[in-house]
Simulated scan of single mutants.
Amino acid sequence: MKNITPIIISCLLLGATHSHSQTVRLGQYELEAVSVSLAQERVKGKNTVKAVKDSVVKAVDEPTFIKVIGTDFKNGIIEVKVLSRLLKNAPEFARGFIGIAFRINDSNTKYESIYVRPTNARAEDQVRRNHTIQYYAYPDYKFDRLRKEAPERYESYTDMTLNQWITMRIEVKDTQAKLFINKHQQPSLVVNDLKHGAAHSGAIGLWVDIGTEGYFTDLKIIKQD
Rank of each mutant, 00 (worst) to 15 (best):
K44W: 14
G45V: 10
K46G: 08
K46D: 10
K46W: 09
N47A: 15
T48S: 04
T48C: 07
V49D: 02
V52Y: 03
V52M: 12
K53G: 01
D54K: 14
D54R: 13
V57R: 02
K58F: 06
K58H: 08
K58G: 07
A59C: 06
A59P: 04
V60F: 15
T64Q: 01
F65Y: 12
F65G: 00
I66Y: 02
I66A: 00
I66T: 00
K67M: 15
T71Q: 14
D72G: 09
F73V: 03
K74I: 08
N75A: 04
N75Y: 04
I77P: 09
I77G: 05
I78E: 02
I78H: 01
E79Q: 12
E79T: 10
V80W: 04
K81F: 10
V82P: 02
V82G: 01
L83T: 06
L83A: 09
L83P: 00
S84L: 06
R85F: 10
L87H: 07
N89I: 10
P91A: 11
G96Q: 02
G96C: 06
I98C: 07
I98N: 04
I98V: 11
I98E: 02
A101S: 12
A101D: 07
F102E: 03
R103W: 05
I104M: 04
I104V: 06
I104Y: 00
S107G: 12
N108L: 07
N108A: 10
T109E: 13
K110Y: 05
K110F: 07
Y111D: 02
S113K: 04
I114N: 00
Y115L: 07
V116S: 01
R117A: 04
P118R: 02
P118A: 05
P118F: 01
T119H: 05
A123P: 12
E124M: 14
E124Q: 15
E124K: 15
D125A: 03
D125R: 05
D125P: 11
Q126H: 15
Q126F: 15
R128H: 10
N130Q: 13
N130G: 14
H131M: 15
I133P: 00
I133C: 04
Q134M: 12
Q134D: 09
Y135K: 01
Y135G: 00
Y135D: 04
Y135I: 00
Y135S: 00
Y136A: 09
Y138F: 14
P139D: 11
Y141C: 11
D144A: 15
R145G: 08
L146S: 03
